[in-house]
């Protein structure tokens, strides 16, 4: 598998990362995502990493890149499903997921996304 499926759900995109990422895969995902954000005109992206057991600086940087790329295109990115052990590793490694919103699970991620979209549209409206 060298492509990660991207699902469209109402006005957001849902990505579930279930395998260990390597360079090319991460790059493809980034490209695919940005393209789909433009194509579908969505306001948010949810990335579920609950099946990942290790998040290293590479994946951390990839998530940060995706977040800033989608934000430029007007969509917020939320990473959901970080496991406790993964969270501890990330903190211990000193990896900063800058500009990335996080939520406990997909449910909460969607709620957060809704409120983010609302505030950003309000800001733009005024």
């Amino acid at each position: 598998m060298d492509k990660i499926p991207i699902l469209k759900l109402k006005d957001l995109l849902l990505v579930t990362i279930q395998v260990d990422m390597h360079d090319r895969m991460a790059h493809t995902l980034q490209e695919d995502l940005t393209e789909r954000v433009v194509q579908d005109g969505v306001k948010g992206v949810l990335i579920d990493i609950s099946s990942l057991e290790v998040v290293d600086s590479f994946i951390g940087r990839m998530l940060g890149n995706i977040a800033s790329a989608t934000r430029t295109l007007g969509a917020e990115t939320i990473v959901v499903g970080i496991r406790p052990s993964v969270a501890i590793t990330i903190v211990e490694l000193g990896v900063t997921l800058e500009g990335v919103h996080t939520a406990l699970n997909v449910d909460k991620g969607m709620a957060l996304l809704q409120s983010l979209i609302k505030t950003s549209s309000q800001e733009k409206g005024t």
């Binding site: 970080i82 406790p84 969270a87 996080t102 406990l104 909460k108 957060l112």
Partner: peptide, 12 residues
């Protein structure tokens, strides 16, 4: 700080 950062990663 570490504890807060880890909790934040879990969306808290």
């Amino acid at each position: 700080f570490k504890t807060v950062a880890a909790a934040k990663l879990m969306g808290t």
